Each structure stands twice: as structure tokens, then as C-alpha cells.
Computed example of a mutant assay.
Amino acid sequence: MIKLSSLVVAIAIALTGPAQANITPSKKAIKLAHDTILIDTHIDVPYRIHDKWADVTKATDDGDFDYPRAVKGGLNAPFMSIYIPAHLEFEGKGKSFQLANQLIDGMEAIAFRAPDKFAIASSTSDIETQFKQGKISIAMGMENGSPIEGDMQNLQHFFDRGVRYITLAHSQSNHISDSSYDIRRKWKGLSPFGKKLVTEMNNIGMLIDVSHISDDAFYQVMALSNTPVIASHSSLRKYTPGFERNMNDEMLLALKENGGVIQINFGSSFVTSKAGAWYDQMKNKKEAAKKQGTKVSKDFDAMYRAKNPFPFASLTQVLDHIDHVVKLIGIDHVGIGSDYDGVGDSLPIGLKDVSSYPNLVQGLMDRGYNDTDIKKILSGNTLRVWQQAEAYAAKH
């Protein structure tokens, strides 16, 4: 995770202007956020509190999520990410399976410790029931299919534990799929096991998440899946040319044909190419210093940031991503996948934590989206694909 100093944040706010920094949503925007099921398909609380424990049932001093902020923002149905690092020591050695179960245990502990605030959700009906009860539903998605470990029984195991989507790979290719970040395209898409896994995921009602996988793997999933897929936390290559982790227009058109949904990632490097270039430049400077024999201080990153303010994305730019999806493939195919607690302090001005969703709603209202359309973005589209997965599994 990337931690930016308060000085850098202040400089960035000054550069982007007060209108970006001090957004005040209307009463209508706040009410709409609170009165609607609000699903964010990717929040990295499980790994955050595994790495450094915090009681998110109460206010916390750091991170992007806790109960008070979620309530303020109207977030009532987060998909908590069961994130498994793409380390070689994890893949195929039992450690992925172990860690995934521990992270799920952590989510169950939150619901057990604060049953008046949280409840585990393993179905769309759970989401709807718990929304009426005023509870925050904890749904779960697995980021990186490494814990499946080549065994279909593990797929069923994690489904039984409440996982409802699997991101097939993460930052390295695994036994299921090639990764968009990995230049080694071991499988040229999906592995033979990965192709079988897609079918089995359909059959049991597990959503397939195409975020992180290579373009070849994406199109193979499109050809194989009998249910709509999601891109749980991806944005658009139109605004980040050359960044394969995001989706291009051809992929969006294929997603429409599949009936799926792309949930927009808020991380600045996903939203604007300037942020990605900033990271590349800092990395290059550090590597150049090492090659010259210069001892790189542990404070190098902070010093670099102080001299080179981070180009935070804006709420306006996030809305541009949503607009483009809607204009190209329609209102039924876009949702929210913020990546809160997963992208450090690189979040856009105006969308800094889970209390910020009313700002997004206000932005959508300002761009002419009506209440029905906004509700589709907040949850309707994601609930539709999840319900379709449930219905297909009931028949198979």
C-alpha cells in the first residue's frame, strides 16, 4: 500500500482546487445513498486487518473503512476481498488455502462480534433482508484463485464458506489464468484447469471476476461462461492507454454481449494516466540511483513525493469513466468497485473513504442521471448479475 504524507495531500488539494477538495452533497444525494442498497464489489478490509488488526466495528484511525464511516456514506453491502498475494511461496503449496480461510474467519468474527451492525451475506436475498434490518451485509469475493489449488472440491469449500466471486488471477499468472501484469503468458489465456473451473463456477453460482486477467483470458472466459461476469474493480483503458489491467472498448462491448458489469476502480492510477506515469517515474529514479551505487534511503519515496506532488485523480474523472461505459454499452453494465483499503492513499480528491459515496451520487445527479439509473449503478446492476448466477445454478 502507498502512504502519502499529509503535506503531499495538502499540495495536491491546493493544485486541484477547492471545488474538488470540499464537495458538499445535497440532502437528496445523501438520502438516495442511504435509502438504496449500496454495493461496492471490492474493499480490502480482510487483508488490511490481517496485516495490522483494527476493530472496524468502531471508528479507526487509519484505513478507508470502518462502521461509522460506512454508515455515513450509505455503504450497506460491501464485498470484502479475500485477497491472496501472488507470491510463489503461496501458489500450489497450501498456504493460499490457509490464508483464505483465515481471512474469511476474520469477516465472520466481525459479524459475530457486532451482530447488531453486521451480518454475513451469501445471497441476494440476504442482502435485501439485512438492508431492511438496517445491518451492513458482508459479502465476500476472493481476489486471486490460488486457494483453489487445482481441486474442484476447494471451489465448493469456499462457496460453502460464503465466497461469491473469484478473481481468477492477481499480479502473476497462476494455475488458473494468465495475469494482465505478468509478461510471462504461460497459458496464453486460461489453463486447461481454468477452463473447467469457469464451467464449475457457473454451475454452483459463483460469479467470475475478470479483473486482473490477461486479454486472452478475458475473451476465453467470454466464450465459456454461461452467466454474466463482473470486473469487480477495473476502470477504462481509454483514459489510461497501455494499462492492460483496465478494460478497452472492445472488451466492454464483449461484456455487454455477455450481460456483465464493470465496477469502476477509484484508485488514481486506474483513473488517470498521469498517476500511473508518476509511479513509473519514481520507480525509475530509485532504480537509477541504485545502479549508480547510491544508497537509497528508506525515506526515498517520501522525499520524492515531497518534491513531486502526486497527481491525484478527481471525482470528475471517475465520473468520466462511468459516463463512457454508459454511452458505449448502456446503464445496465456499470457499478462501483472502489478498491478502498487496497490502493493506499492514492484515492481521488472527493472519494477518500467509504463516507464519500454521497459525493459520487451528487456527481451523477449533476450529470443528469435520474434516480433509477443511479440505483442501477449503486447496486441494481450487480444484484442482477448475481441473481442470474443464482438462477443458473438452481437449474444445474
Results as ranks from 00 to 15, higher is better:
K196T: 14
I230Y: 12
I138C: 04
F159T: 06
H175P: 05
Y219L: 11
E257I: 13
V198I: 15
S225T: 15
K188Y: 09
S173R: 13
R184G: 00
F266G: 03
M247D: 00
R237Y: 07
R245L: 10
K256N: 10
I213C: 08
Y181A: 15
I208P: 11
I176E: 06
H212M: 09
K196S: 13
E250T: 09
G242Y: 00
R164Q: 03
L236I: 04
R161N: 02
I213M: 04
R184W: 07
I230R: 13
G162D: 02
F193P: 04
A231N: 03
N226G: 15
F266P: 02
I166Y: 02
Y239C: 05
F218H: 05
N174L: 03
R237N: 12
M247H: 13
K256E: 14
N174D: 04
M142P: 02
I204C: 12
L168R: 07
F158M: 00
L252D: 07
K196L: 12
S225R: 10
G194D: 09
R161F: 05
Y165V: 07
L236G: 09
Q220S: 04
L197V: 11
G205Y: 06
N226Y: 07
Y181R: 11
S173P: 04
A231F: 13
D216S: 14
V229I: 15
T167D: 00
M140V: 00
P228D: 10
S234Q: 02
I262D: 06
N144H: 08
D215A: 14
V163A: 00
G259P: 08
K238C: 05
R237I: 09
I176V: 10
E149D: 06
G189E: 07
F218K: 03
Q130F: 15
S235P: 03
T227L: 10
I148E: 00
E257S: 15
R184D: 14
N154W: 06
Y181I: 05
A254F: 04
I176N: 00
Q133E: 15
D209Y: 11
L224R: 01
E143W: 04
S214C: 02
D216V: 13
K256P: 05
Q133M: 12
H175E: 14
F266Y: 15
T240M: 01
I213A: 11
M247Y: 13
E143S: 11
I230G: 08
E250G: 14
S180V: 03
D182N: 12
S234Y: 09
F266R: 11
A223R: 14
P241A: 02
N246L: 06
F159D: 07
G267P: 01
H212Q: 11
M142A: 03
P147Q: 06
L197N: 04
F158V: 01
E200C: 08
I183P: 15
N202H: 08
Q172N: 15
S214H: 08
M201D: 10
N248M: 08
P241T: 08
P147W: 01
S232W: 11
H157C: 02
D151R: 02
N202P: 07
E250P: 06
G189C: 06
Q156P: 00
G189A: 10
Q156I: 11
S235G: 01
R185I: 05
Q130L: 12
E143K: 01
K238W: 12
I213S: 10
A217I: 02
P192Y: 09
E143C: 01
G259A: 12
I136D: 03
A217S: 12
